[in-house]
């Protein structure tokens, strides 16, 4: 009994020590950790970015064929082009409006199961990718560690696509297509809300 009490106390002390331990600042880890966290969180904390990236993944899965594998390979590159434009402080017209529009258009494409030709779909996604990349890239020079920030946001975006592709795989099960279309409709509704908000701000 006594031993059990001691064990519990020791576990408590260990847990407390671990929870209150100071962070390790190992070789610029403050900068790297900070940059990586900022990069990972940037696409996740902006709901307009998040839903649009998930929609890109779902639409790619719906289109199937080349779209499902070209998307994860080429999209980051196109987005990086947009990021470079942002880094170089070259302005794009109405960026917030286009990002909101991307969620609306991609959400509708998923909800309505739009079977666009591959080239057209790729062109639409590429234009939106440039604007999303621009928004992320504009933050890059001021990040704690720009390289870590870049790694973070590229990985986060890729994982959001993967999440979208996984949702798209629900179509294999009965009723799955309805769920996907429902998700698409929700994304489109959010996109519409963002669009109205952007227009309200712009007005």
């Amino acid at each position: 009994m006594m031993r059990r009490h001691l064990l519990h106390s020791a576990c408590g002390v260990v847990l407390l020590s671990v929870l209150t331990a100071s962070p390790g600042f190992a070789h610029e880890q403050t900068g790297v950790g900070g940059g990586l966290a900022a990069g990972l969180l940037h696409p996740l904390t902006g709901l307009d970015h998040l839903v649009a990236m998930v929609a890109v993944g779902i639409w790619g899965a719906q289109l199937g064929g080349a779209a499902i594998w070209v998307l994860p390979i080429v999209f980051p590159l196109v987005m990086a082009l947009g990021a470079v434009v942002g880094i170089l402080k070259i302005g794009l017209p109405v960026p917030e409006l286009v990002i909101a529009l991307s969620a609306l258009v991609l959400g509708l494409a998923v909800a309505l199961r739009v079977r666009a030709p591959f080239v057209l779909a790729a062109a639409v996604v590429a234009v939106f990718a440039i604007f999303h990349g621009h928004a992320h890239g504009a933050e890059l020079p001021s990040a704690a560690n720009p390289l870590a920030y870049g790694c973070g946001f590229v990985v986060a975006t890729g994982l959001l696509h993967a999440f979208g592709i996984t949702i798209g795989a629900l179509a294999r099960w009965p009723g799955g297509e309805r769920v996907i279309q429902g998700v698409g409709a929700a994304i489109a509704a959010l996109g519409g809300y963002f669009l109205v908000t952007s227009l309200g701000v712009a007005a």
């Binding site: 594998w69 390979i73 080429v74 980051p76 590159l77 987005m79 990086a80 170089l88 990985v155 890729g158």
Partner: peptide
């Protein structure tokens, strides 16, 4: 495709870093 996708990520990181070095 998974390995190639990581290649796409790496290329994107390289492109952005090149852009950053041009900007500074």
């Amino acid at each position: 495709i998974a390995v190639r996708a990581i290649g796409g990520w790496l290329a994107a990181i390289g492109l952005m870093m090149a852009g950053l070095s041009l900007a500074t």
